[in-house]
Design a protein around this nucleic acid. Structure first.
Lengths: 165, 165
DNA sequence: ACAATATGTCAGCTTTGTTGACACTCCAAG
DNA sequence: CTTGGAGTGTCAACAAAGCTGACATATTGT
């Protein structure tokens, strides 16, 4: 073994370290979805409903096409989810003002209330993880995740992020 | 607004920061699975097959029950996946030596070869993200993910991690 | 002998994704 | 004003991957 081939600054790039990162991502994502899943399964809903509710709440008045781009599913798949949410009175679909082909989506009071329950649960876990790890770790966490995104997804993530606060 | 209510050290725990963390996790996970998914869809396989292959490779000779505990699915669900992998000659199931009720699972040569293709793709993305973000960020990333796991999952993650290298 | 364990399998159901086809509304350009 | 295309909704059919419940088999340990 030649010395100095692998410098200290590259030690975290060994296959072993990478595999640990992969497994950490897998197990953490299961924790990440566990709390909302528990709430959703008591109703007739699943993760797809949660995602729709999240992003409608995030950008009220968004169109179906925009939601399709963010979620990356087919309109048939999204439509099935939206239909149940509209039927159940959690989402309101208003005909577009300037372009009447578009549908602008909004959460109703009930929809907002469910969104709060779901995001409270998810935020509580995220808050606890952030608190445990500390501000520097949080910054690193965000940096790595952002680098892991696909180009188009990263664009959408940043666009949402910058529209926030 | 009163000054000093929210100290600098807690700024990263605002709902806005937490929501960004949640969305980062969502978009990053899609990037995380994108490359293996592309490889898998060219065959008749899905993510469930990838997970089985990953953990069999990780712990050769593991039993079905152990795999069930790690993956958190029902045996019917896992069995469907394992059956196709065994039929296709990617996984070998050997009767247990000491306890003949158990089945010890191993990757065949073909199974190992597919595992390499999948993990090479996934590691490449992880490596690139790690390199972009730097060692400190990687450490933070791992810390936050570990805190985000459920208790039982964290136990399994650590057990795998410590058995490595 | 008997109970418990590990595994496999059958049937049936759910959620969430997919294609393909088609209709309707509406905007904009010719 | 007609016509093409975009945005939307819906139908049918299907697939992957999870679930429950029930049951069979082999094996182990008491």
């Amino acid at each position: 073994m030649g010395e100095g081939i692998r410098s200290d600054s590259l030690l975290y790039l060994t296959d072993e370290q990478l595999r640990q990162g992969i497994e950490a991502m897998y197990f953490a994502y299961r924790g990440f979805t566990a709390d909302p899943d528990r709430i959703l399964e008591s109703m007739a809903y699943g993760r797809a409903h949660h995602r729709a509710i999240h992003f409608i709440n995030r950008a009220p008045g968004t169109t179906v096409t925009n939601l399709l781009a963010i979620l990356g599913v087919t309109k048939q798949s999204l439509n099935r989810v939206l239909r149940t949410l509209i039927e159940d009175g959690l989402v309101e679909s208003r005909v577009g003002k300037s372009d009447r082909r578009e549908r602008n989506l909004y959460l109703t009071e009930d929809g907002t209330s469910l969104e709060h329950r779901l995001s409270d649960a998810q935020r509580a876990r995220m808050r606890s993880a952030f608190r445990d790890a500390g501000p520097d770790a949080v910054s690193g966490f965000r940096q790595v995740l952002e680098s892991m995104m696909d180009g188009e997804l990263r664009r959408q993530y940043k666009s949402l992020r910058d529209s926030g606060q």
